[in-house]
Simulated assay, not measured.
Amino acid sequence: MGIDESQQSLLSESRNNSLPNEKKDLRRRRTLEKENYFQGQSVFQKPPQCIDGKLQAEFHFRLVFLWLALYLGGGTICFLLTSHQIKGIKTNGFLDAIYFCVVTMTTVGYGDLVPDSQLAKLLACVYVFIGMALVGLILSKAADYFVDKQEILLVSTLFKGEHFGPEELSKEVQTNKAKYKFLLATSIFLVLMVAGIIFLYFVENLDFVDAIYCVCSTVTTLGYGDKSFSTVIGRAFAVFWILSSTICLAQTFAYLAEYYTDERQKSLTKMVLTRKLSLFDLEAADLDGDHVVSATEFALYKLKEMGKINQDDILAVMDIFRKLDFDQSGTLTEADLIYSE
């Protein structure tokens, strides 16, 4: 098969590319008719609504802080006003309220502060569901954003002695993205674990085993309640530490699952690309039934084997192509797009 054949589109392979002269002339006339309309501009230009991805990510990241501030602020006011209906170990009214908010939204539930009236219990029920939605839908996205921003730093540190340039670093990150996300999240989680243990040991005066026990019961949201933060300084620390550590652990397990899936996909891809081709493969790859497998047909067949696309995807794309191909030439031109509108 020639090199030119690999450059043809899928649909152009399934048709006779020798168009009648009148069709070629029709296409030329249509293109010329639209030249003044385009005035040197291509219909393939980037639409104005396609904004820069980085700016969009920054914008959403700022919204995360806004939603979190509204949630914690509203909850703190509600539980501060009903503080007399909450029983348990109390320190400072405002600090206890925001601490109760964080313990509730992360489902840690130590039990050192509990609702003691019908109104407080109903508020806690509503608040915990909203908090779980906030953690699952918004704060987890913020964690993803933070990890993505730090991946290059992690890779540059790991390959510090190999003098990788920006392009090589970026390529390495994209190739093993799931792996580095998992490594980074695990590293951050371990730092938070150590920080929590040290704080509980030196500030809350727990012994070393109890400090480890309290940290583990917190980050896993078990929250037995026999060991918790009971000082003013401890609860101030817990407001930030509980929120970050519980989210970080959840993201670490999510990245682990992603990394495992990615490794399995890479193994499947390697197997598909290295195994020998059989006559059955040639027959299955022949999409147009002409007993000849082109480069495009071969690529599509291998992509289907890798699980990256399926037959329905191909048929859907071909159907869209046929609708856009106004003059039925097997190729798309600017004139085709104008007449198909």
Rank of each mutant, 00 (worst) to 15 (best):
L192S: 03
F199Q: 03
Y145K: 03
D319A: 14
A284T: 09
V173G: 00
T104F: 00
C248R: 01
I212D: 00
D96M: 01
L70V: 15
N17C: 14
K270Q: 12
D207C: 13
E305Y: 07
G75S: 05
R275W: 04
L119E: 05
M306C: 15
S278A: 10
H84C: 10
T175C: 15
V219Q: 04
C101L: 02
K266Y: 05
R15S: 12
C125P: 02
T157L: 15
F38Y: 11
D319W: 09
Q49K: 09
I51A: 12
L134P: 02
S245H: 01
T106A: 05
Y259C: 04
T296Q: 10
F100T: 00
G161K: 06
E263N: 13
S140C: 14
G225Q: 04
V272T: 08
A124S: 12
L137Y: 09
I242S: 00
T106C: 13
K160H: 12
V209Y: 08
Y110V: 07
Y259V: 00
Y71M: 11
N21K: 12
K266R: 13
L122F: 12
S329A: 14
C125N: 08
K23S: 13
G2M: 04
L337H: 00
K181S: 11
D112C: 13
T333A: 05
V272M: 09
K160R: 14
I89P: 02
Y110F: 15
K121W: 13
A236N: 06
K181Y: 02
V128M: 11
Q56Y: 11
K90F: 10
R275S: 07
R30D: 07
P20E: 10
K177W: 07
G136M: 05
L63K: 09
F100S: 00
F79V: 06
V128K: 06
D148Q: 12
V191P: 02
F199W: 08
M105C: 07
D281I: 14
A238P: 03
G88F: 01
Y99G: 01
F164D: 03
K90C: 11
A120Q: 04
K121S: 13
L55N: 10
P47G: 11
L190S: 12
Q8S: 14
L184Q: 05
L222P: 00
S294G: 12
T76F: 07
G73F: 09
A143G: 11
K227L: 15
Y260T: 05
A254S: 12
S9V: 03
K177F: 10
L154V: 13
I138E: 05
S140Y: 03
S42D: 07
T91W: 00
K227R: 14
G2D: 08
L119A: 08
I98V: 15
L256W: 02
K323I: 15
K141S: 08
C125Q: 07
R30V: 06
A178K: 01
S329I: 04
K304Q: 11
E305V: 07
L95R: 02
V232W: 09
T274G: 11
E334S: 01
K304A: 11
I314N: 00
A238C: 13
I320Y: 08
D25G: 07
N310A: 01
S187I: 15
V103S: 13
T296G: 09
I152S: 04
